[in-house]
């Protein structure tokens, strides 16, 4: 079970509270997690990554296990604690003021 935490503005858009949980087959990657999030909540398409290029939006960050995974390739494996469900995959709005 993969645990995912959305930022508060997107929880409001998706109308969910708390963590999300997904059963994902191996390999568990950033792309697989985002695909699963968007499949369950189509309204979030385009809010995390560009709909055409699939690149992460500039002010969206991916954190897990006290690491910034934002700049990892989308098909890199996520850390084992995330795969085992011990740690959540955090989707974070960057500190960008405004």
């Amino acid at each position: 079970m993969i645990r995912v935490v959305l930022p508060a503005p997107l929880r409001a858009i998706a109308r969910v509270e708390g963590e999300l949980a997904f059963d994902l087959a191996d390999p568990v990657t950033q792309r697989a997690v985002l695909d699963a999030v968007e499949a369950r909540f189509p309204v979030l398409r385009g809010t995390l990554r560009d709909q055409v290029t699939q690149r992460r939006r500039a002010f969206v960050r991916f954190h897990a296990c006290a690491q910034d995974l934002s700049h990892e390739p989308p098909d890199a494996l996520l850390p084992d604690p995330v795969v085992r469900g011990e740690e959540p995959f955090l989707i974070v709005g960057a500190m960008a003021g405004g």
């Binding site: 858009i13 385009g46 002010f59």
Partner: peptide, 8 residues
């Protein structure tokens, strides 16, 4: 819209 999460 937002600078973080794009257009809805």
């Amino acid at each position: 819209s937002s600078g973080w999460f794009g257009q809805l």
